[in-house]
């Protein structure tokens, strides 16, 4: 690993100043991706800016409307140990609990998982399904961005020069809604999703009111399959509708063959997991009030 300077700003303003002053700098939250990339030489920053001391990046709060603000550096263990998150966004808690092992969860953040922009990121299809948005701060002020627009290529995100992710915002769960994230891994833990599916459904009198489906590991970025979800709107909640959505999701996938699975197998899994994720989300929606 090459020498680098280290800075730990205590405010968002200071972090943005450092970011502007050091265009080659990289941001460090949990470091569970960054340090590995620095060790294997894939990234060689001259400055590492540790953002864990910035208050806005450590926020975990619920506003008056019931929406969740999740600071970009909040570690997974805080997410899944938070009683309100477990109650209102159980799928988020469950997903935070399957990212890496317990040591990783002590450091790794959901914001970091998104910024790393890996196609296989477990939390991203879920964030997309939940309709999450990003709060981005930069030299020109702040802007919101839908999570589905954040990742633009493998390992590349939509942050412009000098910008940084401050927090994620998840809307309050709608009535009769359910969310589920499901991944397939050959082992039972400590593995990268061969395929991941995040699904959210809102039900209305035996019909789908709306649905959002997103996939991991089957495209250069986490993939929002809007049409597959939109196709469910107004349809009855039955096997035929769910199967059609699963087929639409599988058809939208553009997987590759690598050491984690073949393209053919991944496309097949897209259908199986979409179906299973939708079924789990529906079960949850039927149980919710």
């Amino acid at each position: 690993m090459k020498w680098f300077d280290y800075a730990a700003p205590a405010s968002l303003a200071e972090a943005l100043q450092l970011r502007a002053a050091h265009p080659q700098a990289l941001l460090l939250a949990g470091g569970t991706d960054l340090l590995v990339q620095m060790k294997n030489g894939r990234r060689q920053p001259d400055v590492v800016i540790d953002i864990k001391k910035v208050p806005e990046l450590n926020a975990l709060s619920i506003d008056a409307a019931g929406a969740l603000t999740l600071g970009a550096a909040v570690a997974c263990h805080r997410v899944y140990q938070d009683a309100a998150v477990r109650k209102h966004w159980p799928a988020l808690a469950e997903t935070a609990e399957i990212i890496g092992g317990i040591q990783i969860q002590g450091r790794a953040s959901i914001g970091g998982n998104l910024c790393n922009a890996a196609p296989s990121a477990d939390s991203v299809p879920l964030l997309i399904a939940m309709g999450g948005t990003c709060r981005i701060a930069g030299p020109a002020g702040e802007r919101p961005l839908a999570v589905e627009d954040f990742c633009i290529a493998p390992g590349r995100n939509a942050l412009a020069a000098g910008e940084m992710l401050v927090s994620l915002h998840i809307p309050a769960p709608a009535a009769h809604s359910g969310v589920h994230y499901l991944r397939f891994i050959p082992r039972n833990e400590m593995d990268i999703a061969v395929v991941g599916v995040g699904a959210q459904v809102v039900l209305n009198n035996g019909n789908f009111q709306s649905a959002r489906i997103a996939l991991a590991s089957v495209a250069p970025t986490p993939l929002f399959v809007r049409a597959a979800g939109d196709g469910l709107a107004g349809k009855p909640v039955n096997e035929e509708s769910i199967q059609a959505a699963a087929e639409a999701a599988a058809a939208a996938a553009t997987p590759i063959t690598d050491m984690r699975g073949t393209a053919e197998y991944r496309r097949h899994l897209c259908g199986v997991l979409t179906l299973r994720a939708l079924e789990a989300a529906i079960r949850q929606a039927k149980g919710s009030h």
Binding site: P186, R187, N188, E189, M190, D191, I192, D258, M259, R260
Partner: peptide, 27 residues
């Protein structure tokens, strides 16, 4: 699960314990 997953040039593309996939206690 275990194997040396080689590309056609003879590079092992899963040369980490993450992707080499030995069983863990949970498996």
């Amino acid at each position: 699960n275990e194997e040396y997953y080689m590309n056609t040039e003879g590079t092992m593309t899963n040369s980490s314990l993450l992707d080499y996939r030995m069983p863990t206690a949970l498996d």
